[in-house]
Design a protein around this nucleic acid. Structure first.
Lengths: 225, 225
DNA sequence: AAGAACACGTGAAAC
DNA sequence: TGTTTCACGTGTTCT
């Protein structure tokens, strides 16, 4: 432990006392001061270690297979956990499909990296809700030469969002068709969106002379109703 | 630095050499051994510190406001991040609403802990998709004395799932009404589900004499078509 | 000047 | 066995 160090200090003090006896007391009190300073220093450092280790313990409970893992490995595990959770959270929020207050039309190829199978499209449309929107959309999708894997529609406060997972029909799965399908899906959805926008402009044109700009749901500055 | 320590070692060796001159060489080589051992030890420890600190640096990049944060605070921030991401991930996976292959009808009170505001219900229905399902559901919801905050419906391979976020209408927000609302929502949805199930039984009764039991999409053990 | 935060080397224990 | 991990006290720097 600190045995060696105290021996060193004793030895030094002895030499100094031999050299000048009258300074013994002063040296003793300065020694006491440095000792107490050293003590408080080591105590502070101990507290710091305890803080850090307590946090590490908490983290150890938050990762799977928590037991008997050295600090570095534990931290590596935490890093993976955070990265994975972040990815999952963004994917899930993509899957949440909460309608936003801006119109949106998007057709994107999934798995863009590989030019091979599977050919997968995600088409999403976000706009105001209209009673005829559902049947229009169904009609538009049905008319397309595609296979609809999954469709999800959600509404929130008068806004509407729809997401479709699309692939080719079996007999038509030829590379040349792919870009055609993308553009035809995009075209079909934009016709639906155009219809909605047209009815919106018709309804609100007198209040908003320019192309309408939606306000956020949480923005009440436009009017006190 | 290590000046003091080397002085100590020198002093000790000097004493020992004085005491027994013949053992000087042996002591010297043992001294060299311990020195090299000590060196490798401190180097190993240095590597360990570097590993841990590298992980902490990586973690620092993964949390917002990463710079100039002491280790303990950084770890506390990571703990919060992980907890928050876990919560968000579970909530999002609840929000994913992928139709499963088992029928489901659930009406649950959110924020059960507090008996006060807000009164929030999440009602979900999962069943086979039928063409008339959408209008039936819309009719059922419209007939209820509720305020529909959000509705989300999704379909997948002929299965259907719908999730509603429900609260009371303003004028009817009385505690006594709450249980009534829960049961009426449940009743309305179960009538819709009953209708779907009835049509399913009607269509498949001849093939499955007992109450039908759906098989998983990935379970092909029931029959070879 | 006094405390906080960090890196370092070392002794001890685990395997 | 020696390699690995941890806690500790200390020296240093910044504020």
């Amino acid at each position: 432990m600190s045995i060696k160090h105290s021996l060193v200090l004793d030895g030094e003090m002895g030499e100094l006392v031999k050299a000048s006896r009258s300074l013994g007391k002063k040296i003793a009190v300065s020694e006491a001061k440095t000792m107490s300073a050293l003590k408080s220093h080591s105590e502070a450092e101990r507290r710091r270690r305890e803080r850090i280790n307590a946090r590490l313990e908490t983290l150890r409970e938050l990762v799977p297979s928590n037991e008997k893992m050295d600090k570095a490995t534990l931290l590596a595990e935490v890093i993976n956990q955070v990265k994975q959770l972040k990815k999952a959270a963004t994917q899930a929020s993509e899957g949440l499909h909460i309608p936003m207050d801006t119109n949106e039309l998007k057709v994107e190829k999934l798995y863009k990296n590989s030019n091979y199978e599977p050919f997968l499209l995600r088409a999403s449309l976000c706009c105001d809700y209209r009673p005829e929107l559902l049947s229009d959309l169904r009609q538009a999708i049905n008319d397309l030469p595609i296979k609809l894997l999954k469709s999800e529609i959600s509404t929130l406060k008068g806004r509407f969002k729809s997401v479709f997972l699309i692939t080719t029909r079996e007999e038509e799965n030829i590379n040349n068709d792919r870009e055609l399908i993308v553009s035809s899906v995009h075209g079909a959805l934009s016709r639906v969106l155009d219809k909605v926008s047209a009815s919106a402009e018709f309804a609100e044109e007198m209040f908003f002379p320019r192309k309408r700009q939606r306000v956020s749901y949480f923005d009440s500055s436009s009017s006190s109703l």
